[in-house]
Amino acid sequence: MRFFLYILFFIYAYCEISFFIKVADSIGVFLALICIIATSFIGFSLVKTQGLKNFSIMRQKMANHQSLKDEVIKNFALLFAGFFLLIPGFLTDILGAILLIPYMQEFLVKLIVKKMPIKSTLVSSTSINQSEEIIEGEFRRKNDE
């Protein structure tokens, strides 16, 4: 297994370096480096805005006692997109940008939800309190002297 991971890493590094060399040949090394840095900044800002939007949708669904499985899968897609955008290189930036596309996220949600059924239940504090008897009262503390 470890040998397979080494081979996979070297194949990835070879593809990434060869793609960078081809891009650098056509637009120049300095401009290629600027493009890699710019895609990282732009990608992280997109991940941040989509993540905050997804977080607000999750809060609304929790308030309405709806299932959160779609938003959780979208959050994982955003997490992987941010990870791929963090790694320098054009191929990983392209993969991270693909994961940022909302239609691609919807496709992943449908694919994952269809493959493995996820059952979720939401337990709120109001449902727990309604089933138990509530006793109201007052108390005072006595200081130990």
Results as ranks from 00 to 15, higher is better:
residue 1 M to K: 10
residue 1 M to H: 09
residue 2 R to H: 13
residue 2 R to I: 13
residue 5 L to G: 03
residue 7 I to H: 01
residue 10 F to H: 07
residue 10 F to K: 06
residue 11 I to T: 14
residue 11 I to D: 04
residue 12 Y to A: 03
residue 13 A to C: 02
residue 14 Y to C: 03
residue 19 F to W: 04
residue 19 F to L: 06
residue 20 F to T: 06
residue 20 F to I: 05
residue 21 I to F: 07
residue 21 I to N: 07
residue 22 K to R: 11
residue 24 A to R: 05
residue 25 D to E: 13
residue 25 D to N: 12
residue 27 I to L: 09
residue 27 I to G: 04
residue 29 V to W: 15
residue 30 F to M: 14
residue 33 L to Y: 15
residue 34 I to M: 11
residue 35 C to E: 13
residue 36 I to V: 13
residue 37 I to T: 09
residue 39 T to C: 10
residue 41 F to N: 00
residue 45 S to G: 06
residue 46 L to Y: 15
residue 46 L to M: 15
residue 46 L to A: 13
residue 47 V to S: 07
residue 47 V to Q: 05
residue 47 V to P: 02
residue 48 K to T: 09
residue 50 Q to G: 00
residue 51 G to Y: 01
residue 51 G to P: 00
residue 55 F to S: 05
residue 58 M to L: 07
residue 58 M to K: 08
residue 61 K to M: 06
residue 62 M to T: 05
residue 68 L to I: 06
residue 69 K to N: 10
residue 69 K to A: 10
residue 70 D to R: 10
residue 71 E to I: 02
residue 76 F to Q: 01
residue 77 A to N: 03
residue 77 A to R: 00
residue 80 F to G: 00
residue 81 A to V: 04
residue 83 F to C: 09
residue 83 F to Q: 08
residue 84 F to S: 15
residue 84 F to C: 15
residue 88 P to A: 15
residue 90 F to S: 04
residue 91 L to N: 12
residue 92 T to Y: 07
residue 96 G to A: 07
residue 96 G to M: 08
residue 96 G to K: 09
residue 97 A to S: 14
residue 97 A to N: 11
residue 100 L to W: 06
residue 101 I to L: 07
residue 101 I to P: 08
residue 103 Y to M: 12
residue 105 Q to C: 05
residue 106 E to G: 05
residue 106 E to Y: 11
residue 106 E to A: 10
residue 107 F to R: 12
residue 107 F to V: 13
residue 109 V to T: 13
residue 111 L to R: 10
residue 111 L to T: 09
residue 111 L to M: 12
residue 112 I to A: 13
residue 113 V to Y: 01
residue 114 K to D: 08
residue 116 M to R: 09
residue 117 P to D: 14
residue 117 P to L: 14
residue 122 L to E: 11
residue 123 V to C: 03
residue 126 T to C: 12
residue 128 I to R: 03
residue 130 Q to L: 07
residue 132 E to K: 13
residue 134 I to R: 10
residue 134 I to L: 15
residue 141 R to E: 08
residue 141 R to Q: 05
residue 144 D to C: 02
